[in-house]
Nucleic acid binder design. Sequence first.
DNA 1: GCTGTTTGCGCAAACGTTGTCTCAAATCGA
DNA 2: TCGATTTGAGACAACGTTTGCGCAAACAGC
Lengths: 335, 335
Amino acid sequence: MQLKDLAKQLNVSVSTVSRTVNGTGRVGAKTRERILDAIKQTGYQPNEVARSLKRRSARTLGVVVADLSNSFYSKVIKGVEKVASENSYNVFVCNTDEEVGKEEEYIRVLLQNQVSGLVIATVGSDVRLFQPYIDSGIPFVFIDNLPLLEERFNLVAIDNAKASRSITQHLVDQGHRKIAMMTGPLNQSTSSERLLGFRKCLEDNGIMPEERWIGVGTFKQEYGYRMMREWLLNEDRPTAVLAANDFLMYGAIKAIYERGLKIPEDIAVACFDANDETGLISPGITAIIQPAYEIGSIAAEIIMRREHDKGRKQYEKIELEPVLLLKQSSMGNKG
Amino acid sequence: MQLKDLAKQLNVSVSTVSRTVNGTGRVGAKTRERILDAIKQTGYQPNEVARSLKRRSARTLGVVVADLSNSFYSKVIKGVEKVASENSYNVFVCNTDEEVGKEEEYIRVLLQNQVSGLVIATVGSDVRLFQPYIDSGIPFVFIDNLPLLEERFNLVAIDNAKASRSITQHLVDQGHRKIAMMTGPLNQSTSSERLLGFRKCLEDNGIMPEERWIGVGTFKQEYGYRMMREWLLNEDRPTAVLAANDFLMYGAIKAIYERGLKIPEDIAVACFDANDETGLISPGITAIIQPAYEIGSIAAEIIMRREHDKGRKQYEKIELEPVLLLKQSSMGNKG
DNA sequence: GCTGTTTGCGCAAACGTTGTCTCAAATCGA
DNA sequence: TCGATTTGAGACAACGTTTGCGCAAACAGC
């Protein structure tokens, strides 16, 4: 069933039907009634692809994340989705597995599909590849990581350095001096900023950061495990460890337990984004919790604002406040 | 940049450019070279929306799940995505929050967007609403739950009744006689089938299922907690409990611990889909593990088969084998 | 009743592709 | 060298919408 058939059936022109469907232009009250009735009866559904082609924009948002099964991202997606569906947009979700190549490919595909805007948790693709699109006004909203080498973008994120300082300060306040940190690749700003905040905090407290206790690797559990194991091999080991995300933390804890050590008695643990839906992980993990859902919904809202008010050329950088959640994993007695 | 511009630039017709882009029809070697070069230089990207309109099908798969942050579904999605991208399709992901209305709405939207096929973990929407599409040959592939009142569909799932029997049998083998079960709404086949298998197994073992120890509610943690608490209030309590998914199990465990009981010493626990990425939940949970990733990829493959061989009118029902993962939560001594 | 404005609706041209139908030119066999 | 065949490439009509333009009818003001 399409516009044409409906029009024929009712002896009106396609334009008239189209206008009543969209509520645009002028249509007589009587004809409108008839058309609306017919639509209900026949169950006509407009072809969105044709619409998108005509209006040169699909009412669609693209979301590119590194890992769908990471609950931080799935919350972000839910946030995006909520705002999208409120505006009757829908959402393309893409999963890059943290591969730059895949990320670039997906962004390209999304743009070819005429998305109205993109929400990207980049792992470092070269955004300049998409310059023509950016210039043509398609909003790119970054969350989490900053893009490389590019100024013209919107951002929704927490202040990672600051958050990192605050959680590190908490460890220091607990009496720790020998604090280790593990993080992902430094070309991701979440990594570098969190490390920066960590260093800054230690220095502010007159503690010299120990380079051997700074682990820069990947954001995966495997790396957290390996790094922690290495640190624990040595007699002189850290009394606290900060992990830049939850996967690293899980790996670290595994190594700690394997070594027969206790948390927080022997070693305190804290991280970013610990997310225990089950409530069963014990001890509870002290962590910086990002407002993931809000990050997603605000990112989508930025795109919506651009949609309603094209032309707008300014970029929004929105900083959200994370929460420092204190749990047992860091509340031992130490010094 | 579009076909037209490229054509003008090279003094050839749009058709010729289109043909070389798609590798269809005949184009002289020399012209092809020139065109390919120009494409590289200008970075021309075809407009997928126009293509989709023309060929009356977007190379796109729709996936409708109840809960994105459920790792079972996110694995399914990854599976779908893998196959899709291998075939240069992409994937619309929709989240229904277990609401039938949302589910129907999303299916509608996806169809309006001319998806080539749908992968649906239904929570009970009325598929007959989409009869015209089904008849027109758009493949619907159900995973997890069966659709209501409709015969013409593809299915990829485990045999829930059988799996349920096997995990129940395991509890019986451990010496349990007083076994409780909690599950979601019975209009979802995962619920009803799992309950059926549970009953069947008890009966086969000459155990009379106790109706008071059968909880039918929702698949949420909250319900697992409430139900378990109720059961534990009574002096005469079950010595083992089977939960139809992991959320219910988490809730149940919370109630058990609150009551000061031990797993598995006081009460054994088993469930479907327990998924402890962290490896930190203790004791480990005995569970039926579904091959989620395979479910997704096979579902997508079914759609791909249909794409290559339209006309095919048969429906595929594929049954996958789950794994019964034995852990400490059920390995106590009991009778 | 005559001009001037509004209202309702149809026509037709887009939107960016693909694919069928041409037809001229090139190639072939004898 | 001549017809027969193959090959290369252009014209043009789709695909299902939206929308600017135009025109007749209806309505207003005087």
